[in-house]
Design a protein around this nucleic acid. Structure first.
Length: 804
RNA sequence: GCCGGUGUGGCGGAAUUGGCAUACGCAUGGGACUUAAAAUCCCAGGCCGCGAGGCAUACGGGUUCGACCCCCGUCACCGGCACCA
């Protein structure tokens, strides 16, 4: 009988779906396992083999957990708000909801085609009003706690399309669609105060099992830095505050620099003799994009203020103040003290403008470059009371001094910025706030949620940069929920990150219309036990969702501080030739084609066998065929009805080893070696007659990887129930060991021969066996055995020296 | 520049508290079956050498009875951040 993968896969997919085989149970007495994969953005291109890798991996893990007796929640959904859909809708004059519907159907069909054991009763879709009701509800909680606020923020503005662009639409400083100039423009935006959670987002990483590079990347992204804020007096009679991590170098400060956006400039306008130059420099900086401003850090530019100078509090000397765009308004205080001897950027600036460079830490050659080491290498000089100290000693000494003088204090800064939460787009969650001339921003009452997206005629953004919703005057004009007076709705929508920040919670209780999820469901399923996803989501999605979850925890709405107990990450699937798969390169592999040609089980086995799960892997059409060959061999071996429910003598040992290896490897995501071991077992079984008992175990181990075939053969052999719900086999370690061992024999560290001895033989026995070996005897001839090293059951090393 | 990762046959990759390097698969060669081919099944193989043996885990050192593995240095590639004071 041939392996008819098409019929078999159709049959079992239909069976699983109709019988709700993999539905998770709320309120079960069983231990739970919540395995999570990143839900897809349902693009028009459909599922990509890149999706198949992480999805198959977590499916394998979930299927094994189910067989191990867990109540498994393995859900899927769609993160369906987003730009590509909106752009497609604009271009083709189709409502984005309809585009989404079509794409979702396609994704669902493809996911089912791959035999994933998702609980299809729990599918979620972020664009569904019954879902985004709760996204809006959580936003309002944030708003009520003061964590959502309005601020003027720069946006990317395409001067030719006259629209606001997302960062990813700005390519090399120009508009991705038209190539037009992109400038920074201030716009009032909703912000979320994620920086208030910065410390906890760092510190709580100690309590979760995330792979190290995720933790590191999040820590670096948050960028906590411990330093000092210092106040400098000015000749204008006011003061200027700077942030520094090197307060020890205060005696070496020879100038100050302000960011072009620094507000003090306006205050000093009347005093600044060269105001025209300063204003011109400021305008020029404003017209530079972020890209231009940060791209070339080679040449420092700036203008010295005429008429205002600062005073170094340590030396009491007057020093000049500059404006320069190498200082960022968005970090620290927007002003820095210039220490050209010990900061490379300051060194370049001072060299260009001919400013004095003072050495205050001895140890380098400051005529060539700044000396920046912060360890014990340098010694303080030219620094009054700090002289003779190391930098490590001088930092706290100076911090104490400025604190005592009342001109400074310790301060922690972060690179992390607050989250810009507004988008001037149609296809996103409406922000449920009303702007009332009397009451200000007023949240919609809960019973008015969800605030639905209105039907609009055009999804095009306006040429003023406002959201398309702003043209809907019927929708925009409303009454204030507080005072009943005329008021206007917010017309910006939420970013795509909103819906994905809490979706894992909805899976726990997806049909609840009283709450985003019920208390019992949250208590039972929290936290997510294992979340696998791409490294590209480390600093945005993963951080945002941890932030929301911590907020919900503070509100008493979820039971755990952290949403995910464990986070792992997969490598990318590259096209043949080792390049990233892309439409333009024409190297995209469509899962539909592979399934049509070889079947879903082959695709699953191949994508798990392709290489180390955590590393990038190159697609190989030939190697796919090899995996199909393996499944054919399994089919030919197992489609013959066998006899004997006990394990066969010939295969028993290898079977126990395989159970052990597959069990351990799946837990460590070493899927490739688990499959290699099953291949070896099958190779061995070809050498003899496997019993029905042998086959049973093989099918169970194979079931997570090739579930359709395993199920079919299970039925064919007449085993009870479903392979995928059978109890995961256990191994007996004592049955995995050999009674005889092959011992490597080395002479002076080089392998010279091998001998076979009973397991656990002592040194004497092994040595005797070794000396009985012709080759070893030859080496030992005329030599003294100086030393022997035995690694039990593995190796014997003889150290020989010529006899005297 | 800073942070992290990786480097093993013709190819994808195995092997870690330091103990037989190259499992498994692809490609290749040989054999069986076949009128023949495909498919299938079996066997072989790091490189050099007739052989004894020698040389091999990016490169150069070191520690060790013994190093793909640990330490020091160098190179290459990949990812993240990047004027963060």
């Amino acid at each position: 009988m041939d392996y008819n993968y098409y019929q078999i896969e159709q049959k079992w997919q239909k069976y699983w779906l109709e019988n709700r085989t993999y539905a998770a149970e709320n309120g079960s007495e069983k231990p739970k396992f919540f395995g999570l994969v990143e839900f897809p953005y349902p693009s028009g291109q459909g599922l990509h083999v890149g999706h198949a890798r992480p999805y198959t991996a977590m499916d394998v893990i979930s299927r094994k957990k189910r067989m191990e007796g867990y109540n498994v929640l393995f859900p899927i959904g769609y993160d369906a708000f987003g730009l590509p859909t909106e752009n497609y809708a604009i271009k083709n004059h189709i409502h984005p909801a309809i585009v989404t519907e079509t794409n979702v159907s396609n994704f669902r069909r493809q996911l089912q085609m791959l035999g994933y054991s998702f609980d299809w009763d729990r599918e979620v879709n972020t664009t569904d009003p019954s879902y985004y009701k709760w996204t809006q509800w959580i936003f309002l909680r944030l708003f009520k706690k003061g964590l959502a606020y309005k601020a003027s923020m720069p946006v990317n503005w395409c001067t030719s399309c006259k629209i606001v662009l997302a960062n990813e639409e700005v390519v090399d400083g120009v508009c991705e669609r038209c190539g037009g100039e992109v400038i920074r423009r201030e716009k009032s935006q909703w912000m979320l105060a994620i920086t208030k959670y910065a410390d906890r987002l760092i510190d709580d990483l100690d309590d979760v099992d995330f792979i190290n590079r995720v933790k590191l990347q999040q820590r670096n992204w948050i960028g906590r830095s411990e330093g000092t804020e210092l106040v400098f007096g000015t000749t204008a009679g006011d003061s200027l505050t700077v942030y520094t991590t090197r307060c020890d170098t205060l005696f070496g400060v020879t100038y100050m620099v302000l960011s072009p956006e620094h507000p003090v400039l306006e205050q000093w306008k009347a005093r600044i003799a060269n105001w025209d130059d300063v204003a011109a420099y400021r305008d020029e900086a404003a017209h530079k994009s972020d890209f231009e401003r940060s791209e070339l850090n080679k040449d420092k530019t700036g203008v010295m203020l005429q008429g205002v100078r600062a005073v170094n509090p340590a030396t009491k000397e007057e020093i000049p103040i500059f404006v320069s765009d190498y200082v960022l308004m968005s970090y620290g205080t927007g002003a820095v003290m210039g220490v050209p001897g010990h900061d490379q950027r300051d060194w370049e600036f001072a060299t260009k403008f001919g400013l004095p460079i003072i050495e205050v830490v001895r140890g380098g050659d400051i005529t060539k470059e700044a000396f920046t080491l912060k360890d014990d290498t340098g010694v303080m000089v030219n620094s009054g009371f700090l002289n003779g100290m190391t930098v490590k000693e001088a930092i706290p000494a100076m911090r104490d001094w400025v604190t005592a003088q009342g001109i400074g204090h310790p301060k922690t800064n972060y690179k992390l910025r607050d989250w810009v939460f507004s988008r001037q787009r149609y296809w996103g969650e409406p922000i449920p706030l009303v702007n009332c001339p009397c009451c200000g921003w007023v949240p919609l009452p809960e019973d008015q949620l969800p605030l639905l997206l209105p039907e609009v005629d055009s999804y095009e953004v306006t040429d003023t940069g406002e959201s398309p919703l702003s043209k809907m005057t019927d929708w925009v004009n409303t009454t204030c929920p507080k005072c009943g007076g005329p008021a206007q709705r917010e017309t910006d929508t939420m970013p795509q990150w909103a819906g994905s920040s809490w979706y894992f919670l909805r899976y726990m209780d997806p049909h609840n219309d009283e709450a985003f999820a019920g208390k019992d469901a949250l208590q039972y399923w929290s936290p997510v036990d294992w979340y696998n996803g791409g490294m590209e989501h480390t600093t945005l999605h993963l951080l945002y969702s941890r932030f929301w979850h911590k907020f919900l925890y503070d509100e008493g709405l979820v039971p755990t501080k952290e949403p995910y107990a464990k986070r792992t990450s997969h490598g990318m699937i590259l096209g043949e030739g080792g390049e990233k798969m892309s439409k333009s390169r024409g190297n995209v592999v469509n899962p539909n084609d592979i399934v049509a040609q070889y079947g879903a089980d082959t695709l699953r086995v191949y994508i798990m066998f392709i290489g180390d799960f955590t590393k990038a892997a190159e697609w190989s059409a030939k190697a796919v065929a090899g995996c199909r060959r393996f499944l054919d061999r399994v089919w030919n071996l197992c489609s013959v009805v066998r006899t004997g429910d006990e394990l066969s003598k010939a295969n028993e040992k290898e079977i126990h080893r395989t159970i052990q290896k597959v069990t351990q490897d799946i837990d460590q995501m070493k899927f490739n070696t688990a499959i290699a071991q099953m291949m070896s077992l099958v190779n061995q079984m070809y050498g003899g007659e496997p019993s029905r008992g042998d086959i049973r175990i093989l099918l169970q181990l194979l079931s997570p990887f090739a579930p359709h075939m395993a199920e079919e053969l299970w039925q064919l052999q007449g085993f009870e129930g479903l392979a995928s719900l059978s109890a995961w086999p256990e191994f007996d370690e004592s049955k995995t060991v050999d009674s005889e061992k092959t011992i490597a024999v080395q002479v002076n560290g080089k392998l010279r021969s091998t001998v076979v001895v009973p397991a656990d033989s002592d040194e004497k026995t092994v040595l005797a066996a070794a000396l009985a070996d012709k080759k070893i005897a030859g080496y030992a001839e005329g030599m003294d055995i100086v030393k022997t090293i035995l690694v039990p059951n593995k190796l014997l090393n003889l150290i020989l020296k010529p006899k005297k």
